[in-house]
Simulated scan of single mutants.
Amino acid sequence: MKTTEKHNERVANMTFASVYPHYITKVEKKGRTIEELHEVIHWLTGYNKQKLQELIENKATFQEFFQQATLNPKAYLIKGVICGYRIEEIDNPLTQQVRYLDKLIDELAKGRNMQKIFRT
């Protein structure tokens, strides 16, 4: 799916710290824990709790967030629609990675089993 340059730029410049509290609210509202959220983020990016905190404190943009990440080799298996976009059709790699994260957090909030979230 074609995303506009303006949309991709907006995603790239958004800070992880500005979205992270929404992730927490979303998963906790559905009975999941922050620890599970951190597990999902770790699976996708390789970041531990300390590195996440550092990125939040430094107000890292999503561009910086994913530049420093070691993306899980199974990330390409994340498919479906999120925010009106079919993930596997997004042509901008950074926007696609952000949507991978959004999709995993959605799956967590919907009560999906962790093994399925981790594509095992």
Rank of each mutant, 00 (worst) to 15 (best):
R99G: 03
N113D: 14
E39H: 11
Q53S: 10
K59A: 07
T70W: 13
N92W: 01
V98R: 02
H38D: 14
R112T: 15
Q115S: 14
R86N: 03
F62R: 00
G111T: 05
A69H: 05
T3P: 07
G80H: 04
K59Q: 08
I78Y: 05
R112N: 13
T4F: 06
V11P: 00
N8T: 04
N72P: 12
K49W: 08
F66P: 03
P73W: 07
A60M: 09
K116Q: 14
K30R: 11
M1P: 06
L55Q: 13
E28N: 07
L77D: 08
M14L: 13
I56W: 06
E36K: 14
E9W: 12
T4K: 05
K2C: 08
Q53D: 11
E54Q: 12
F66H: 03
N8Y: 10
A12R: 07
F65N: 03
I82E: 09
L104M: 08
Q67L: 14
W43G: 04
K59L: 12
H38L: 10
L104T: 06
M14Y: 08
T45Y: 15
K116H: 13
L94E: 05
Y47I: 07
E54W: 14
E36M: 09
E36R: 13
K49G: 09
I90Y: 01
Y76I: 12
T33E: 11
Q50Y: 11
N13G: 07
K51F: 11
I82D: 06
D91T: 12
L104W: 03
L94Q: 03
I34F: 08
N72I: 10
K30L: 04
T15S: 05
A69W: 15
K51R: 13
I41C: 01
G80W: 02
L94P: 01
K103C: 11
I117W: 01
T3V: 09
K110A: 11
G84R: 00
E57Y: 10
T3L: 05
R99C: 04
A69P: 06
V81C: 03
N48Y: 08
